[in-house]
Design a protein around this nucleic acid. Structure first.
Lengths: 325, 325
DNA sequence: TAAAGTATTGTAAACGTTTACGTAAAGTGC
DNA sequence: GCACTTTACGTAAACGTTTACAATACTTTA
């Protein structure tokens, strides 16, 4: 069946310890001649290490566990690309455990699965754990880091965009385009949403705007469509949306209702994924750098000294009208 | 540090074998009194099984490995939702290994990683392996199944939509709407693409249409945008696109070139993800049931008797014009 | 009551790999 | 040539859990 180091040792005429040292590349503990023989035989036999045996002995593996939340917004690919690349550079493998979308049970199971394996670190992407799971993580002794979430607790590692900066920059941009009746749409009441609300309100205050307007949602396209009804009686000229999906839903519902974008209503979308290019018109966005968020989170969980916040930028497309001043 | 069954045995006054039997729920091999005591102490100690030790001894785990290709088209979520749900119903965990997008090195590494772990099965989603990797999989003794790919080799398990049926239904639908100058766009030369070409051409023949028009691409939005140039000199009235992203790219490039959809050019998109709702106008699609593809692939790899093909359906939106006949 | 059957438990070995420590041989410096 | 250091290798034990088999205790049957 599956060849083991015992098989290699028997064919090489050396001990299993020597085979192990060669296969673990313990330089200086074997001769070149012995190494060549062992590597040749290992290849002939199609030998592969038994990961479970290694992890059992070493009580640690060179594997990062990524716990992945399926958000309505598709930014996972960028984050994962960043994680995979950086992990690979640091000699770490990556396994992904799926936690559904705000499914507490699946999340708990994913966390326990990660803890049951001797992973070197855990990255939780766009996931807000409850206190019990957070305690579990803290007590495990395994380093963990939140990705695209900032809990603002000093002992908890995270890498994300600065959510207050995201919305305050969006407000700045819209004010610059002449807008003063600015709303925030599709946000939720979790940490990310709360931070974005704070930035939105700080941005309004900084420009002396006293009227705020916040509509809650769940970041999804359908949520965006439904939110349009709530804006119809209001006098807002511009809306900052919590996600590209909210923006797309608002956009399409508005157009179906005869409201032209950007002529009658301007939109600035948070995230800046490819969705912003697909809509008609394209969506002006506060674009997050998901690739670097992912990449930097690997450095963070590996104990390297990195900045928590990854900068964002405004990307102009076609959804914001410049008002006469 | 981490409690082991030795700690539980010491506190319970029983042997480690008894602790193991209780924790493995070997019914009929322990008394209720002993069980209660062991479970209480395990909970007090915060005991968790060491997965590596279990896998080492059993040489098998109740875990499916999903090797995930990051396609330009975002259908992964549906597939994974289907896989996770069905696996959970069958008592299997799921770990996901990321293979990038047509990155042979990452794919090979993902496959080797899966083989190094005592997984119960491997699901390869939208992945076309080379011969060496396919041989590796076959020689491993671990069951594997292709998801959303059909290799048409009798010993190789797969679950997907019927790609010939997808394009022939699209042709049927467009002919029904009065179209006879029908193209196929964005397809590649791999298995899926080849099957869709066959269905497209069979569909044309069935309607006595002798002129075919096929433009290759890579399923991405950018590829779709670029393909428009190739269609400008042609007299096609309708295009079947290889993915929603190709459709969105063609759509937006056409509108920017003053070509109206559906008035001047009709589009039918293969996949039917949420992208089809986001574009303006919405894209008529041959919609695949990714959730059931994922779900059924779990049954397939677990050795249950299931149909290879999951039915597709035409979903009308706003991208096809009915021509006068 | 004795024998047979069943339930419960413990001992020992297995799983595949790593590594501390001991030993022998080779290399280096005085 | 001698003492010290380095290289190379082997032995034995460890890692945490499972399980076959043996032993013991309890229950049922004749």
């Amino acid at each position: 069946m599956k060849p083991t180091i015992k098989d290699i040792a028997a064919r090489s005429g050396v001990s299993i310890a020597t085979v192990s040292r060669v296969l673990s590349q313990k330089t200086g503990t074997y001769s070149e001649k012995t190494q060549a023989k062992i590597l040749r035989i290992a290849k002939e036999l199609g030998y592969r290490k038994n990961t479970a045996a290694v992890e059992l002995v070493k009580k640690r593996s060179a594997v990062l566990a990524v716990i992945l939340n399926a958000t309505p917004t598709n930014f996972s690919t960028g984050v994962i690309d960043g994680i995979q690349k950086r992990a690979s550079e640091l000699g770490q493998g990556v396994i992904i455990l799926y936690a559904g979308n705000r499914d507490a049970q699946m999340l708990h199971k994913a966390i326990v699965t990660a803890l049951e394996r001797a992973v070197s670190g855990i990255l939780l992407t766009a996931i807000e754990p409850d206190e019990a799971d957070l305690t579990l993580l803290k007590d495990s002794g395994i380093p963990f880091c939140f990705v695209s979430l900032y809990l603002n607790q000093p002992q908890i590692l995270s890498v994300s965009s600065n959510n207050e900066s995201i919305t305050s920059q969006a407000v700045d941009y819209l004010v610059e385009q002449g807008h003063t009746a600015i709303a925030l749409a599709g946000i939720d009441g979790y940490h990310t949403g709360t931070q974005r609300i704070a930035g939105y309100e700080a941005g309004l205050r900084a420009h002396g705007i006293t009227t705020s307007c916040i509509k809650y949602g769940d970041y999804s396209y359908e949520s965006g469509r439904q939110l349009l009804q709530e804006f119809l009686p209001l006098k807002v000229t511009a809306i900052i949306t919590a996600s590209d999906m909210i923006a797309a839903g608002l956009l399409n519902a508005a157009q179906e209702a005869g409201i032209r974008v950007p002529e009658d209503l301007s939109l600035v979308s948070i995230d800046g994924t490819i969705i912003c290019n697909i809509t008609t018109p394209g969506l002006t966005s506060v674009t997050q750098d998901f690739y670097h968020i992912g990449s930097r989170s690997v450095d963070q969980v590996m104990g390297h000294d990195v900045e928590t916040f990854v900068p964002v930028k405004i990307e102009e497309r076609g959804s914001v009208k410049q008002l006469k001043k």
